[in-house]
Amino acid sequence: ALANGLDAIRITTTQEIVLPDLTKDKLGAVRLWLKSVEIPEVGDAGPDFDLVGCLGTSACPIGVTNAAGLVPELAELKNAGGLKIRASGCHNACSQHHVADIGLHGVTRLVNGKPMPHYQIHLGGDFSSPGGLALEGPTVPARKVPAALTHVLAAWNDARASGETIRAWAERLGEKGLNDLILPAATNIDEAANFFDWGESGAFSGPATGKGDCAAPQVANDHLADLALDALERMDRALLAGLWSLALHEAERAIVLAARRRLELDKRTKSKNPALPIIDRLRGAFKYRPILVEALEQLESARQIALVTGEAQTYRTAIADWLEQIESAEPLTSSKENVDAAELEQRVAAL
């Protein structure tokens, strides 16, 4: 690009390349360069619809299906002129499938006890103002998606009213109508070929468990921190209004949301025994961090004082300290993660 006199290249969210500040005298050389690296220009032969897919399992460690392998198959669709079609390898929506005319996101389904790649179909999303999320349609095996969308596009072109959008058409059909239209394309589901994803030579093994390239994990953790602070603020407002029960509810919510953030950052799980009080459940979940167990003991002590005396400031301060300790806790090192279980139990019991 630099050799052809380009100072910048920009990639859009729809996987297009923009060459800013391109002067007319450089246009011919740049077009030759684009052809040499097989990058088509707008208007070149290709699909007459807007098709975008994420990389899926071809590159992303948390992808479920190989969306990049599916996209070339979708490029052969007919009767899709002007539509936006988006394919994501998982629910995190890197291709923005939820606001496309036709969206797909990869999921796993068990067939005869074995994992099979599937796609959830979405219809009628719109990212323009005021916009709207797509309607959820049925889930079909990945290998059946091109046939299923062929049915959808043929039916939409044949049966839609003049000027009717694909969303209005889908709403008119309703859930049963969409299922009746799409699911016949997904017959013979247990065929051997259906256990192989598009673009893959090996049998499908199910969703990945690694850390992905999208922002979802970081966003989720930050969101939990924000929700915990919001709950603490709502506790303050409830106390000012004299709403004692609501204040206690928001206090517990702040404690739990902050705890969830720390557990997810530490790649741990919280206790799932609903019969135990929340402090007891968290005490068990955080037994690998004695400092946080001690903070939980202080929380419970402050809570009991608040319940007996009706004075909540000590409890509120303990919750704020809890949120601060959750935020400032050092990341686990391999040595900390591998502390002998018996020794850890003794340390916790001594608190």
Score class of each variant (00 low, 15 high):
Ala1Cys: 15
Ala1Ile: 06
Ala3Pro: 10
Asn4Tyr: 14
Ile9Arg: 04
Arg10Gly: 04
Glu16Pro: 11
Val18Lys: 10
Lys26Tyr: 06
Pro40Leu: 13
Asp44Met: 09
Phe49Lys: 03
Asp50Thr: 12
Gly53Val: 04
Leu55Phe: 12
Thr65Gln: 07
Asn66Cys: 04
Ala68Pro: 14
Gly69Gln: 12
Leu70Phe: 08
Leu70Val: 00
Glu73Met: 13
Ala75Arg: 03
Arg86Val: 04
Gly89Thr: 15
His97Lys: 05
Leu110Arg: 09
Val111Glu: 08
Ile121His: 08
His122Cys: 09
Pro141Gly: 05
Pro141Glu: 01
Lys144Ala: 07
Leu149Asp: 01
Thr150Ile: 01
His151Lys: 00
Thr165Ala: 07
Thr165Lys: 00
Ala168Lys: 15
Ala168Met: 01
Leu178Gln: 01
Asn179Phe: 00
Leu181Gly: 00
Ala192Asn: 11
Asn194Gly: 09
Phe196Ala: 15
Ala203Ser: 15
Ala203Val: 15
Gly206Pro: 09
Pro207Met: 06
Thr209Lys: 06
Gln218Cys: 15
Ala220Tyr: 13
Leu224Tyr: 10
Leu227Thr: 05
Ala238Leu: 11
Glu250Tyr: 12
Leu257Asp: 03
Asp266Thr: 06
Lys272Trp: 13
Lys272Tyr: 04
Asn273Val: 03
Pro274Trp: 02
Leu276Thr: 12
Ile278Trp: 12
Ile279Thr: 09
Arg283Lys: 10
Phe286Asn: 04
Pro290Glu: 04
Val293Ala: 10
Val293Glu: 01
Glu294Lys: 13
Glu294Thr: 13
Ser301Val: 14
Ala302Pro: 02
Gln304Ile: 06
Thr314Val: 11
Thr317Asp: 08
Thr317Lys: 07
Ala318Asp: 12
Asp321Leu: 15
Leu323Trp: 02
Glu324Asp: 07
Glu327Val: 05
Glu327Leu: 10
Glu330Lys: 12
Glu330Asp: 08
Pro331Cys: 10
Thr333Asp: 02
Arg347Asn: 06
Ala349His: 13
Ala350Cys: 10
